[in-house]
C-alpha cells in the first residue's frame, strides 16, 4: 500500500470517526426512538467502498466500530455496529457489482440491512424475540437514513477528481 493510499484511507477513517462522535453528542433525531441514528459516518464508509473496494472498506468499518465502541464507553455496542456494518457493506458491494441501482437505493438497502443485523444480534444477546417488533420502525428509518447517506456520497464522489480513485464498479 502506497503512502498516498494509506493517507487517503486514514482521512476517510478520520471523517467516519468524527461524524460518528458528533452524532453521538447530538440529541436523537426521533425523541421517541432514541436508538434510531442517521449514521452519517457511513458516508465515509460508502465512499471507501466506492473508491477502494470491499477489503479496504471492511477494514475502515472494523476500525470505526471498535474505536467508537471503546471510546463511547459501551464496548458491547461493538458487536451491534459490527454486525450491522458487515451486512450493509456486503449488500452495498453486491448491489454496486450488479450496477442496476442508483447510489441512494443501494445505500437505502444497506441502511435497512444495517438495522436487521443489529436487531438480530440484539435478539441473540438478550435471547428475546420480542424486540423483533422494533425492526419494522428501524428498517423504515434505516431506509431513509441510508438514502440520505447515498445522496451525500453521490455528490461528494462527483466533486472529487477521478484520478483520486482507483476502484470502479
Amino acid at each position: 500500500m502506497s503512502a498516498n493510499k494509506l493517507a487517503r484511507l486514514s482521512a476517510l477513517l478520520a471523517v467516519a470517526l468524527l461524524l460518528g462522535f458528533l452524532e453521538n453528542m447530538l440529541p436523537p433525531v426521533l425523541p421517541t426512538m432514541p436508538y434510531c441514528r442517521l449514521g452519517l459516518g457511513n458516508v465515509a464508509l460508502l465512499l471507501a467502498l466506492l473508491w477502494f473496494g470491499l477489503p479496504y472498506a471492511a477494514l475502515i468499518a472494523l476500525l470505526k466500530c471498535v474505536i467508537i465502541g471503546v471510546f463511547s464507553g459501551a464496548p458491547i455496542s461493538i458487536l451491534y455496529s459490527l454486525s450491522g456494518s458487515a451486512l450493509s457493506l456486503l449488500s452495498s458491494f453486491l448491489l454496486l457489482k450488479l450496477s442496476l441501482n442508483g447510489l441512494p437505493a443501494v445505500s437505502a438497502v444497506g441502511g435497512i440491512l444495517h438495522n436487521v443485523g443489529q436487531v438480530m444480534i440484539a435478539m441473540l444477546i438478550t435471547k428475546t424475540s420480542a424486540i423483533a417488533y422494533v425492526l419494522i420502525y428501524l428498517s423504515v428509518f434505516g431506509a431513509f437514513a441510508g438514502a440520505l447517506t447515498g445522496v451525500i456520497a453521490y455528490f461528494v464522489d462527483r466533486a472529487i477528481p477521478s484520478k483520486e480513485k482507483e476502484n470502479e464498479y
Binding site: 466506492l50 450496477s99 442496476l100 441501482n101 442508483g102 447510489l103 441512494p104 437505493a105 437505502a108 438497502v109 435497512i112 417488533y133 419494522i136 420502525y137 428498517s139 423504515v140 431506509a143 431513509f144 445522496v151 453521490y154 464522489d157 462527483r158 470502479e168 464498479y169
Partner: peptide, 27 residues
Amino acid sequence: STYSLFRIWDVIVIVVVLLLVALALYF
C-alpha cells in the same frame, strides 16, 4: 461519475420501502 442518483431498478427498492412504511403505520 459511474454512479447515478436514480436508476429504473430503484423502483423495486422504493416499493419495498413503501410497504415497510405502510406496515409501520398499521402498527
